[in-house]
Design a protein around this nucleic acid. Structure first.
Length: 261
DNA sequence: ATGGTGGATCCTCCA
């Protein structure tokens, strides 16, 4: 059995101590980070190595984006793809010794206006999702897990108020449709919702709320999916809401799942 | 309806 976690850290250099705290308290075998906001060579690895995370695969750039995979289990670099040709570090993959491939994604947020005619970034988000669909369709993944900040809350119970968010980027029908097409193309199973089918689930709360905990205007933007051949091995999903209350937190919290593989 | 916060870097962009 191994545990995998995904967390949009919003600067791994600023929050090195928070990463170390998660690794100490939860000890996932694999931690996938997004928004590292750092060139790979400047990611602080010593504290993570000291905790047993001796394996590391990442892509980065200065100031923006960036994805990394820290692992206690041996992994090898399984490449990346520049989805939508943006030149951003938003995807990296790793392979475990048992043959499982882990994809770590950071889907573009998409700006504020949900219209590709008025907002270039929204179109780029849709194009990114369309290319995910096409890649999964052309080469159907097997024995694969895909995690990350997908920047879409697909279900009505993945947001604090479905009706109020229908025109808010991250929950518009067109985004949900594009995400569903990518999910369907790979036959991906939403492991978090397989394990927790009922009830409101959030993994992100805005920095802009006066009191994020009391207002509780959250969204489930961070996901763990698996291909059908291994999806039933996934269990014990959880979202670590208290992490949002840590000192100088990320606006996202870790999402975890176990796999009996 | 609006503005609210946070991070990195450049003198503003992105979320």
């Amino acid at each position: 059995m191994f545990t995998i976690a995904t967390w949009n850290i919003n600067s791994v250099r600023l929050r090195e101590a928070l990463v170390a705290r998660l690794l100490t308290e939860e000890a996932p075998d694999i931690l996938c980070l997004q928004e590292t906001k750092s060139p790979v060579e400047h990611i602080p690895l010593e504290a993570f190595r000291a905790l047993g995370y001796n394996y590391f695969v990442a892509r980065g750039q200065k100031g923006y984006n960036g994805v990394a995979i820290l692992s206690k289990l041996p992994i090898e670099d399984a490449g990346d793809r520049d989805y939508a040709g943006l030149g951003h570090a938003r995807h990296v993959a790793a392979r475990l010794e048992n043959g499982v491939t882990v994809h770590n994604f950071y889907v573009p947020a998409g700006g504020d206006i949900p219209d590709r005619e008025q907002n270039l970034k929204f179109g780029q988000k849709l194009d990114f999702l369309t290319e995910m669909r096409d890649v999964f369709h052309a080469d159907r993944p097997a024995r694969a897990i895909m995690v990350g900040d997908l920047n879409i809350a697909p279900r009505e119970d993945d947001v604090w108020n479905h009706k109020a968010l229908l025109k808010i980027v991250s929950h518009t029908p067109v985004e949900v449709e594009h995400l569903a097409a990518a999910q369907d193309a790979g036959k991906w199973v939403d492991v978090t919702r397989k394990d927790i089918p009922q009830g409101m689930l959030y993994s992100w709360w805005s920095y802009r709320a006066r009191d994020w905990d009391a207002a509780d205007k959250g969204r489930r933007l961070d996901h763990i999916w698996a291909t059908p051949d291994i999806a039933n091995a996934g269990h014990g999903s959880r979202i670590l809401r208290p992490v949002r209350g840590w000192q100088q937190p990320s606006d996202h919290v870790p999402v975890l799942a176990n796999f009996d593989l």
